[in-house]
Design a protein around this nucleic acid. Structure first.
Lengths: 352, 352
DNA sequence: CTGAAAGCGCTTACAG
DNA sequence: CTGAAAGCGCTTACAG
């Protein structure tokens, strides 16, 4: 043969993927029947269904989400809307959502935002409408903004809210994390160790979780007959630095130090550790500390921090599962994920 | 009027969104011309373009990504593929990618995976092909797997790799993070303080970053005439626990303790802190420590950890920008983001 | 520089 | 239980 010209291989694109038409033709049914099978319609004879499904598996057919989305006027995308500053929380939530989406036709598209910026609701609206999202998962603090929820209702977008307590007036799907109970467990634990002079560093008041954790803690103490004086409650901002400032006020500002501190999250507990270190206050011998989140940080600190675990991945999984269940199966409208205390080495009975 | 029947309001769905046909009709051009304007074709007269664009803004028109995707046979989705265990790194990378995608038609869909599981490449392939992704961003360790890159080449999928050093044979787009230089800066810093007995805790050998950081560190010492003996190099697994184990070997196992330790990431540095705490070794008086990542953890530890900052958000932004630039503008094929040392309080000159 | 026709791969609405 | 026609909102390929 003249020349060494190789037979022209078709370039990178291997055999074009099968379409609904190929499946219909090869299995001898109409494309409408194939469509019924894709969409799990019961109106297909069992043997037809099985024959077609076998063919789909054989050729590796998967319906095109864009074509389906165009016809449905709705995409197969789930949005996650959040402005939480804690990386581990966000990543855990994403993992949970993806757990629920696996084996489904849905994918996760992320949308961080800043709930304090004026245009953020419009940003979410554009995101939802342009992508024709199937639904969105709202994570605190975005989930607590009623104006956001109202906007989503108005444009007819499904959503699931993750919230520290059952929220609001309308019937939106929710996953409740019962922060009140988690904080109460922390309170009971400190009381059981014998602490009576306890202080509290809260998150910012703009967060509903702050309200829940604060009240859960205060009321649990009250149930056991202990009233927390106002000067033992210090509002901070969920950040390390704000935790440092609050701890300074609590530990260095007054003659009488509390024997235990509960903080609204682990970051602020790290702030308490920092101040204690600097001031030579020994944890747990002179000061017991309990955090909230059970983040990786909790076990990196020394001594390892006792903290309330949130089961964030479960929360994300549940939220996504609720969102993608069929419209008619309205079984799940409110779900719960319960926190619980993880005891490590940051607490002991008070010294005296 | 009989009855109090309200005029039937159309339900939740407000005025249907404008389509390309509406824009064409209202502005008196063909839909093809509108399409040209959407796609920034130069083949449109300036005044026509301006008139139509004004109308688009007025009615708030945005083209439907599913319809465009169906016609293009390619979606407007960017995938991010990763199996990195560090939450902050992932979140920073996502933020960076979203920075670059803002104001574009693209959205980010996340795809964590496990590069040690046998089916993971098939999983990525299905993800890419079913969603007809516009491109994917590969993050370590996934970015270092040549088999993954080969598969993406084979199916004709664009991708950008984030890697610690320029990688491989083919011409894929890359963002290089120069981990070798970051580690060298850590070495120079410790040398400049006067340390001569230095130890190294590395990440797992399966990571290219481990190789780069280790060699960058070792060679920087060598350039200054210091040869690191093998027993001062300890392989660990990038986790806190593995850092603890390595630190125990280095600090408690031998008579002569090193005066400084460099660790492949901050998590393992936290392990060194833990062991030092337990053994009563004071940082930095008796032991200097340098980490890598400059994660939030670095400033939560006591004393605050000196660490190499990675600029992850910039890295993500650059990677995404490269991916969505037009095919013809091949200007950017390799980009660099440089690490640098953040000095805090975990180092000082050796005691003797 | 502009446009009419056909098609991307699905589903809806209607018939049977 | 099954199917033929029309359409979702865009782009490609071809003409002018």
């Amino acid at each position: 043969m003249p020349g060494r010209k190789k037979p022209t291989m078709p370039p990178a694109t291997p055999a074009k993927a099968a379409t609904i038409n190929d499946i219909a033709r090869l299995s001898g049914v109409s494309k409408k029947t194939v469509s019924r099978i894709i969409n799990q319609s019961p109106l297909v004879r069992k043997d037809t269904r099985e024959r077609v499904e076998a063919l789909m598996r054989e050729v590796g057919y998967a319906p095109d989400p864009m074509a389906r989305g165009l016809a449905f006027r709705k995409s197969f995308l789930i949005g996650m809307v959040y402005d939480n500053p804690t990386a581990q929380y966000i990543v855990d939530m994403q993992y949970g959502v993806l757990d629920a989406l696996r084996e489904s036709a849905f994918e996760l598209v992320v949308h961080p935002c800043d709930t304090r910026s004026p245009g953020y609701i419009d940003g979410v609206r554009r995101f939802v409408q342009q992508q024709k999202l199937h639904g969105v998962i709202l994570v605190p603090r975005a989930s607590e903004d009623q104006a956001l929820a109202d906007m989503l209702d108005e444009i007819g977008c499904r959503y699931t809210r993750v919230a520290s307590v059952a929220l609001g007036s309308n019937s939106s799907q929710q996953v409740i994390t019962h922060d009140r109970d988690g904080a109460a467990e922390a309170a009971d634990y400190l009381l059981s160790l014998g602490h009576r002079d306890i202080a509290l560093i809260t998150g910012p008041s703009a967060y509903r979780s702050t309200y829940e954790r604060t009240n859960g803690f205060v009321e649990a103490l009250r149930r056991r007959g202990l009233e927390l004086p106002p000067e033992r409650i210090c509002e901070a901002g969920y950040t390390f630095e704000s935790g440092v400032a609050a701890a300074e006020k609590l530990l260095l500002g007054s003659k009488q130090r509390p024997t235990a501190i509960f903080t609204g999250n682990d970051e602020m507990a790290a702030g308490v550790y920092r101040v204690s270190m600097r001031a030579g206050i020994q944890i747990p011998r002179e000061l017991s500390v309990v955090g909230y989140d059970d983040s990786p940080l909790a076990s990196r600190l020394w001594p390892p921090l006792t903290s309330v675990r949130r089961q964030t991945r479960d929360t994300g999984r549940t939220a996504a599962a609720m969102l993608i269940q069929p419209e008619d199966a309205k079984t799940l409208s409110v779900a719960s994920v319960r926190p619980h205390l993880i005891v490590r080495d940051s607490c002991q009975p008070p010294a005296n």
